[in-house]
Structure formats: structure tokens, C-alpha cells
């Protein structure tokens, strides 16, 4: 019985992965672009979840780290002809370094203060991008002349390959983060989140644990940003404005900041909700109406499911599931009885 219940979630993820793998063979390139955006954003949100949900630190500046990763990948690929994966590696290294750099003052701050520090990073980042024009391309940013991820003779389009790359990266990130959270670091994080004093009293190096969470979260966001930029083929300051950082945080909270599935749900909401709102409102003079509907949608999600959509669905389904094992047990007992009765 026990391995069956352990198998169900695994099975769910395996099925999801399976669907993901065959998806590029089924849907159009246009849809694959948006779905790849969802995957990469989900990766960044998962990184944010480690920080917000598991470590209890707030970051309103992950949009800037996401952008840093994007530029770190695009600049060498566009300006120096590096292969795309080398750009992603560089993005990982730089965002790790930046995470540590930002994490050290963050240790001294908590709650609102950390929020402010990260807001400042999010606000200043696009201004710096515009300033460092020779390197970053200034206002216009960097753009790929043609898709970076391609295999000309394979018969697959770039959009298909990009989706598979993003899917693989997301799977790796999920597994790594899950293991991290279930391992020693995760227990330490849980202790720190509940009470940092208590954790310190129990011999946990609070600062080190928090810094590791910040650094890992930042690296994941940077890699996600690198893949995102490579997929959309651009890195432009206007992509990484303050509202984008806020949207990432909103995705984490709305999806459920302790749930990996929630990261995908949250990312899907910030990519598709604006478009759905536009379709719902209709008419092109109604742009502000669609922003209004988007805002109302966000508020509704929060009010209906304050602990995140994944959490709400979980408890809802959990209640439904609660009866199932009981019934099964009854059935089993009756079968047992039948066996015993026929045996003699």
C-alpha cells in the first residue's frame, strides 16, 4: 500500500513529463514559444519558491537576476559567437556570484528591509542596462539574428528543440530543488524559517543556510533568464522592469510558494492571464479594461486561495482522497474474510 501512495505523485510527474516530451510534436511553433516561456518562468518561480516558501526571505528583485542571466547569455552568444549552452553556463556563474553578493547584505536584513533592497535592485537594473550601451546594446538591447538553439539537419524546428531544452532544464531544477528541500539543507531551512533563534540554538549556521538559499535561488533564476532570453531571441531593458519582478513574486504566491507544481501554475498565469483577459474583454480600445480584469483575476486567486492555487487544489482533492483509502480498506478486509472463509 505504501509504495502505491508513493507511486501516485511520481506517476503524476512522469505523465506530465511524458506529455511534455511529446508536446512539441503536436502543437504549433507559436504555442511552443509561449509554452517555453512558461517553462523558463516556472524555473525562476521555483527558485523564488526556495527563497520565499522554504527560507522565508522575500525578494522583489528576481526579475533583475532573471535579466542578468538573460544578458549574461546573450552578450557572449551575440557579440562573441559562443554556443548557446556556454552562454547559459556563464549566466549560471554570474548569477551565483550576484546572489552571494546580494545575499550578504540581505542576511542583515529581514522582511520589509530585504524587500526594499531587492526593490532597489529591480528598479536600478534596467537603468544600468541603458547606461552600459557598448556592452548591453542600450535601449534596444541584444537580439539574435537567428535562433540559437537549432539542429539544421534534424528535421526539428528551433521552437521544438527550445521546448525540449527548457523542459529538461526545468526537470533537472525541480529534482535538484526537491532533493535540496528534503535533505539536510531543507530541514535547516525549515528550522530557520520557524525561528532563527531556535535554529541557532540547535547548532544550525543560520547565516550560511540563508546565504545558500539565496545563492541557489539566484542561480536558478539566472539560468531561467538565460534560457528565456535565448528562446525569445532578445534581451531588452523593457523586459526587466520593476513590474516584471513583481509579476514573478505574484506568480510564486499565487501558484503556492511551497509547491513545485505551483511554480508552473503561477508561471502559466502570468503568461496567459493577460492574453485571456484581452480575449475576455475584446476590442482593441479596451487595453485598460484587460489590465483591470488581470488585476481582478490576481486578487480573486489570492482571496480564494491565499496559500496558493496548488495548495488550495491539494486540500480540496485531499479531502476527496481522504475517503478513498478507507473504502479500499473495507473492501480489502471483506476480501480477506472471504479468503479465510473458503480456506478451511
Amino acid at each position: 500500500m505504501r509504495h502505491v501512495s508513493r507511486l501516485i505523485p511520481r506517476l503524476g510527474w512522469i505523465i506530465a513529463l511524458g506529455i511534455g516530451v511529446i508536446l512539441p510534436l503536436l502543437v504549433s511553433d507559436f504555442d511552443l514559444l509561449d509554452l517555453s516561456r512558461v517553462l523558463t518562468l516556472a524555473m525562476a518561480v521555483a527558485g523564488l519558491n526556495l527563497l520565499v516558501g522554504h527560507s522565508g526571505q522575500v525578494s522583489v528583485g528576481h526579475g533583475a537576476i532573471f535579466g542578468l542571466g538573460g544578458y549574461a547569455a546573450m552578450i557572449p552568444v551575440v557579440s562573441f559567437g559562443w554556443p548557446w549552452w556556454a552562454g547559459v553556463l556563464l549566466a549560471a556563474v554570474l548569477s551565483l556570484a550576484f546572489g552571494i553578493l546580494l545575499g550578504i547584505p540581505a542576511l542583515k536584513m529581514g522582511g520589509a528591509n530585504l524587500g526594499l533592497l531587492t526593490i532597489a535592485v529591480a528598479v536600478v537594473f534596467p537603468l544600468l542596462l541603458i547606461r552600459f550601451q557598448p556592452l548591453t546594446g542600450g535601449t534596444f538591447g541584444m537580439f539574435l539574428p537567428s535562433p540559437a538553439i537549432s539542429l539544421p539537419d534534424s528535421g526539428f524546428t528551433s521552437r521544438q528543440l527550445e521546448f525540449w531544452v527548457c523542459l529538461l532544464a526545468l526537470a533537472v531544477v525541480f529534482v535538484a530543488l526537491r532533493n535540496l528541500v528534503h535533505g539536510r539543507l531543507g530541514r535547516a531551512l525549515a528550522a530557520v524559517r520557524t525561528s532563527s533563534l531556535l535554529a541557532a540554538a540547535n547548532g544550525i549556521a543560520v547565516n550560511r543556510v540563508k546565504l545558500i538559499a539565496f545563492a541557489v535561488s539566484s542561480t536558478v533564476a539566472g539560468v531561467a533568464g538565460a534560457l528565456y532570453a535565448l528562446v525569445v531571441s532578445i534581451a531588452v531593458p523593457d523586459s526587466y522592469v520593476f513590474t516584471f519582478s513583481i509579476a514573478l513574486l505574484a506568480a510564486s504566491v499565487i501558484g503556492g510558494s511551497r509547491s513545485w507544481a505551483g511554480a508552473i501554475i503561477g508561471a502559466a498565469i502570468i503568461v496567459y492571464l493577460p492574453t485571456l483577459a484581452e480575449a475576455f474583454v475584446g476590442g482593441q480600445a479596451a487595453g485598460n479594461w484587460s489590465q483591470f480584469v488581470y488585476a481582478a483575476g490576481l486578487a480573486l486567486c489570492l482571496i480564494v486561495a491565499p496559500s496558493g492555487i496548488a495548495g488550495a487544489v491539494t486540500s480540496l482533492l485531499g479531502r476527496a482522497f481522504a475517503y478513498a483509502p478507507m473504502r479500499r480498506a473495507v473492501v480489502e478486509r471483506s476480501t480477506d474474510m472471504r479468503t479465510t472463509s473458503t480456506a478451511p
Partner: peptide, 14 residues
């Protein structure tokens, strides 16, 4: 505080 922060964002946009 996080859901409240996010709610503030929704209010801002709305």
C-alpha cells in the same frame, strides 16, 4: 505578509 504584498500589486494594477 506575502499574500498581502501581492494583493497590493493587484490593487495597484486595478
Amino acid at each position: 505578509e506575502l499574500p498581502l504584498l501581492t494583493l497590493g500589486v493587484a490593487l495597484l494594477l486595478g
